[in-house]
């Protein structure tokens, strides 16, 4: 009788534990997590091409190239003022809702390239990085964003050498400015009182030495 009850206890405990373990597994699956580590993301960023030129987007839109989805990340107000024909408005704040994630998953299953369009490239890069790290590999950032797209004549055959969306290109000769700053700060240090005291003393010593 006693043994029977302990057996039942063991069974009850193991069933309880199984429920707990399954519960944990289920919870972890439902929670949205990162698919790749930060180091993997950095390695990807250092070599992969994840951007698309606005000229190419304009060309693809005009010729109705298949296999592209356009997602506008700006808010609905900005979207209604002007947008790329055929683009879907998913405001950045609603990027990770279940409905929108389903949209991205559907595009991934169709092996379509999703082009993200934000106000400019800097604001588009953050959402793209989040989606990339979750595991969506079919997303691209449009360089320059809507600000560039809306205000330029986009012609693939007549692109300037340094278009305005090359924001990471140095706009000034940094080295020359640095040299200027260093030489100037050196001159101003000489005019400071403490700097002058030191050379005077040195020279006196030298004179005494020579005299002896």
């Amino acid at each position: 009788m006693k043994e029977y009850s302990t057996k039942r206890l063991v069974r009850a405990v193991s069933v309880f534990l199984l429920v707990l373990i399954f519960g944990f597994i289920f919870m972890n699956k439902k929670e949205l997590g990162f698919a790749i580590t930060t180091q993997q993301t950095i390695d990807f960023l250092l070599e992969a091409d994840y951007q698309i030129l606005p000229e190419d987007v304009a060309y693809n839109v005009e010729s109705k190239e298949p296999g592209f989805e356009y997602v506008d990340l700006r808010n609905p107000y900005e979207f209604n003022i002007g947008n790329i024909p055929g683009s879907v408005n998913i405001p950045q704040t609603e990027l990770l809702t279940e409905k929108n994630l389903d949209f991205f998953k559907a595009a991934q299953n169709d092996s379509a390239t999703v082009v993200l369009i934000g106000k400019d490239e800097a604001t588009t890069t953050g959402p793209w990085l989040i989606m990339k790290q979750i595991g969506f590999d079919n997303l691209k950032v449009m360089r320059g964003g809507w600000d560039y797209y809306a205000n330029q004549q986009l012609n693939r055959n007549e692109m300037s050498e340094t278009p305005k969306y090359m924001v990471e290109q140095p706009a000034f000769n940094f080295a020359a400015i640095m040299q200027l700053m260093q030489s100037e700060s050196g001159a101003s240090q000489n005019s400071d009182a403490p700097e002058i005291v030191v050379p005077e003393r040195k020279k006196k010593k030298a004179a005494v030495e020579g005299g002896c």
């Binding site: 800097a122 890069t125 990085l129 989040i130 990471e168 706009a171």
Partner: peptide
């Protein structure tokens, strides 16, 4: 130089 690279670094460090 611009704010694209710094945004990338910000997102990754924030993560």
């Amino acid at each position: 130089n611009g704010d694209v690279e710094s945004n990338k670094a910000w997102v990754l460090s924030q993560r």
